[in-house]
Amino acid sequence: MTDTFTSSRTRSAAGNQPASAAENQSASRPGDKTAETKEPSLKGTFIAVMLLGGFIIASWVLVLALFLSRN
């Protein structure tokens, strides 16, 4: 891996046209969504968290209603 990179850099520095084009292809262009900027989808986790939150709120309200009705 390092060998290929080094040799491509060397050739590029020497003004070798095809090597330079290959380098441009592998490098990230501005505005391009490559691996480092792409976020994992957390939609399922979000729904699960909201369901759990809803359950906690509902049980809290239920216990409060029970307390008030028995007061």
Binding site: L42, K43, F46, V49, M50, G53, I57, W60
Partner: peptide, 20 residues
Amino acid sequence: IHRLEKIWIGFGLAMLLIFL
């Protein structure tokens, strides 16, 4: 921090604050 992650952290903190 992921956008959805920010929402549920806010949701959890708000719930804790309201209960307290």
